[in-house]
Design a binder for these strands. Structure first.
Lengths: 238, 238
DNA sequence: ACCTGAACACCGTTCAAGT
DNA sequence: ACCTGAACACCGTTCAAGT
């Protein structure tokens, strides 16, 4: 029996936390959050389910690590510019503005849209590494954009919470069965509201039902984001 | 055997959807979202687990009904005023303003803070009755507050998504073990960030850690809410 | 028609037994 | 030390059998 035969075809590298996290992300991306099982993961890694626990404490930690991995690519503009190296240089034009923070938040939104399970995971635990990373990037962007220090925490938190709300919605959207068309699904929902809309009841939801069927999640998210940024911009500077 | 003996002590009323939902809410409020099990629920109702399925399709539907029940108490100011009865009356002062919408959203926040499982449930499925109800109430409030019609959907959606984000956070906070003090937990988290904060890394999160330990969730939520409302107020009227 | 509760098809996690 | 995979302690849900 050669050494290569002791290592079955499914796994080339030795079992380790990064390898496990990578395999988990693959399953999550391809088959959705419900598909991630320690048994299936073990099969993909050509090992037993118990082996995973030698490298990862439990499923929660695995999901946190997977989320952190995806979000690691998100960098604040300020961070990327290497602030701190030229602290004493003459004050130049701000390295980031509200528009950069806007782009940053939309990047995270796009990442969630591409990996809906990430939406579930981010919304689930506010103190995990991935959320802190996003919070940090947004916060640094706001500093450079000139948001007054006394409002930094409030504005950053508002942006993160809004983002978490949208994250949950994206994850929920992804849970709609694929064979049901999204439009059909939303039309059915709208029909359900309509049926219950008595005289004067649910007039607003009813009026919005038409818009719902063909709206664009990202545009709508951006519109709300702009409300928050407009509110932040209206804060009097120190 | 008398008739009263055929109906065991745990259940006075006949089994029905409302009775089941009421029992579910009791368990959720007292022991948290993880405690709600069809087996435990059946025990509380002095019946078999299978009996519940004669009145409720599945656990999802049960949770949606429980959420709808709690949220039913939330009424938009416009709705409560019986708009529609005096449609042709001379236009009086607006029945609601931004301040009323603010109060409405904070009422929902307070409801979630009092019933953390509601936060999980609302954030989970955007199309459930409870969320539509809140959306409707907020929308009606915005109409009366004079938000331009073309922005109604965006503003209402932004408020709901922000609320859903906060809902998820509240639910997550409630999942912190009770014997661990909240302050100790947050201090530990902050310490964890500190440990990882290299030169220039996580400077923002680090600076915020102190504020985190003793901040007030509700005040912070209100601050973000005010940003959105300020942004909405800045939209030029038609 | 409604209820019962054992049975089914899963989970995450543990752990004795192997290498 | 690391891995294996059966076993444990749960779930939600189903369904034959009762009333």
């Amino acid at each position: 029996m050669s050494a290569s035969q002791r290592r079955p075809s499914g796994r080339r590298e030795a079992l380790s936390a990064p390898v496990i996290v990578r395999a988990a992300i693959e399953i999550l991306d391809e088959h959705g959050e419900d598909a991630l099982t320690f048994r299936l993961l073990a099969t993909h890694l050509s090992t037993g389910a118990g082996a995973i626990y030698h490298h990862v404490a439990n499923k929660d930690e695995l999901l946190e690590a997977a989320a952190a991995e995806l979000v690691a690519g998100i960098e604040s503009i300020a961070g990327a510019a290497g602030a701190g190296e030229a602290e004493d240089a003459a004050p130049s034009a701000p390295a980031a503005s509200d528009a950069d923070v806007r782009t940053l938040v939309l990047d995270v939104f796009d990442l969630i849209e591409a990996h809906p399970w990430l939406g579930s995971q981010l919304a689930r635990a506010p103190w995990q590494t991935a959320v802190i990373h996003v919070f940090e990037a947004i916060g640094q962007g706001l500093v450079v954009a000139g948001v007054p220090e006394r409002s930094l925490f409030d504005v950053a938190s508002a942006l993160v919470q809004y983002l978490m709300g949208a994250a949950g919605q994206q994850a929920a959207s992804a849970r709609i069965p694929r064979d049901v068309g999204r439009t059909e699904f939303l039309t059915a929902i709208a029909g359900n509201w309509t049926a219950r809309a008595g005289r004067g009841e649910r007039r607003f939801a009813l009026a919005m039902a038409a818009q719902l069927a063909d709206h664009d999640d990202r545009l709508q998210f951006a519109a709300g984001l702009d409300l928050i940024l407009a509110g932040a911009a209206a804060i009097p500077r120190a």
